[in-house]
Structures are given as C-alpha cells and as structure tokens.
Amino acid sequence: MEVSRIRTASAPPETELPLVEHPDRLAPRDARELSQLFFQQLAVLEEGTHEYQYARNTLIEMNMSLVRFAARRFRQYADEIEDVVQVGMIGLIKAIDRFELSRETQFATFAVPYIVGEMKRFFRDTTWAVHVPRRLQERRTELGKARAELEGRLDRSPTVKELAALMDISEEEVVEAQVAANGYHSSSLDAALSGDQEDGETALADVIGSEDPAMELVEDFQSLAPAMGSLTERERLVVHLRFVEERTQAEIGTELGVSQMQVSRILRRILTKLREGMGVVVD
C-alpha cells in the first residue's frame, strides 16, 4: 500500500490525512482500514474545504470495488453493465454522505444496500416500455411469483380468483396488475401481426389507429401566430368576430359602425396579409 503523510492546510495537527496513491487499486483489507481513518477525519473537517473534498473523493475511489462487486448480480444485463455501475456509484456516494462511525458497523455492510438499491431502481425505472406506477411494478413481480406457484400446484393456468386468494388482494387488483404488466414490453408499430411483413402481412399500425387530419393544421397554426401578431388591434377584433364568434358581415358592421361592404373589404385585406405572412402565394 503506497501511502505518504501530509498535513491539511486548514485543519489542526491531529487531523493529518494520508495521501493515497491509486486509491482505486487498494486491496479490500487496506481499503477498509483507510476508510475508517478517512471517516474519522471527514467527521471533523469543515464541509466545502479542499481537505473535506479530498477525504470524500478518496473514500469514493477506495470503495469503488463495492460497486463492482454489487454489479456482478446483474451480469445477465451485460449490455447495460456500464449504466449499472454508474448508478451504483450514486448509491456509494449516498452511503458515504450518510455513514456515521457511531453505528459501529463496517462501512461495506452499510453501503452495499444503498448501492444495490440504486441498481434495482435503475432497472425498475428504465426497463418498462411505458411509465407505470412503482406500486404496480412491484405488484407485477408478486403476480408472476403467484402465477408460477399456482401453475406448478394446479398444473394449469390459475384464475383471477385463485391469484387474488393467494396474494391476499382483491380480484380487481389482480386485473389491474395484469393490465399494468402489459407495459413491460412494447412492439414496433411496423411489426407484422404474423409471419414476415415482407410477404405482405398487415402491420400493427394498420389496425390500431388512423392518421389524425388535425395534425396537418399544426404547422399552419405555427405559421399563423406571427402573422396574427402583425395585425392591428382593430383587424384582430374583426378576425375574432368573424371566425371565433362567427358573426355575419352585417353584424360586424353594426358592431364597428361601418357598412357591410367595408367589412368585406377589411376582411379581404386581413386575409391577404395573413396569407402573405404564412408564405402563401396570393394570385
């Protein structure tokens, strides 16, 4: 173990900290011993100082092996292991910030539940295709275990009533959990309902919905907004009366104290200005 002694600049002489070379490479036993010392110093150092940050950062590096150890139980998710380690580091940092020597327990014993908890939360929050309340996510797991137990016992698929009895919940709650479980996996809208789509099979998108014609208006509304801003207050009032309140030209003329012919000219001028503002070619 490569360690040299330094004295902190702002701490009293008794708060000497060891300068650790390559803290992430320490043997577990050395890491445990030094962690004890660093936690003692962390308790007396002022938060925010250089010495405090050095002690905290060194503790993080010395105990990274705990994160790697905890990540092994999720090795079946090899493609996401880097993300698992990253969220595990969050758990390690939380454990360091909350650990107290007065607990009279090893830091590793205290930290691992924090690390594993963050990893489990990562999978719980990211592996569902759609957002589902955590209560229902947990209920799905319970439902799976109950279903497996009853299938083994009954040699058939259990009924909702049988699942409710075993889980000690209502039948409505079982159905709710079954519906929520559908959010765990998703399918592409381009996927064929059966067989190979290249053989002319119908795609999922062809049967579950249709194109909303109102979507074509979105771009028009976005273009219309700045054009409306270029109108005078009187012109905007005319537009409101004609197209929102759907008044006739004669009624608008009475409102403004002008003739129907004048209202027609005003409307024609407004519409020309709006079309030009939207980039519409006016003949």
Score class of each variant (00 low, 15 high):
E2I: 05
I6P: 04
T8L: 14
E14W: 12
H22Q: 13
D24M: 14
L26P: 00
R29L: 14
D30P: 01
E33A: 13
Q40P: 10
A43L: 03
A55H: 02
R56M: 07
R56L: 12
E61M: 01
N63T: 03
V67R: 01
F69S: 10
A71P: 01
R72C: 13
R75W: 13
Y77E: 09
D79Q: 15
I81N: 01
E82G: 11
A95Q: 01
S102H: 06
R103I: 13
T109C: 02
A111F: 02
M119C: 10
F122Y: 10
W128N: 07
R134M: 14
R135V: 15
E138L: 14
A148F: 08
E151N: 03
E151Q: 12
S157G: 04
S157M: 10
S157K: 06
E172Y: 11
E173K: 09
E173N: 11
G183C: 03
D190Y: 14
G195I: 03
G195Y: 03
D196C: 10
D196H: 05
I208T: 14
G209W: 05
A214P: 05
L217A: 15
D220G: 02
R236C: 15
V244F: 14
E246C: 13
A250C: 12
T254F: 08
G257R: 12
Q260S: 09
I266F: 06
L271H: 05
K273Q: 13
G277V: 07
G279P: 12
V282N: 06
D283M: 11
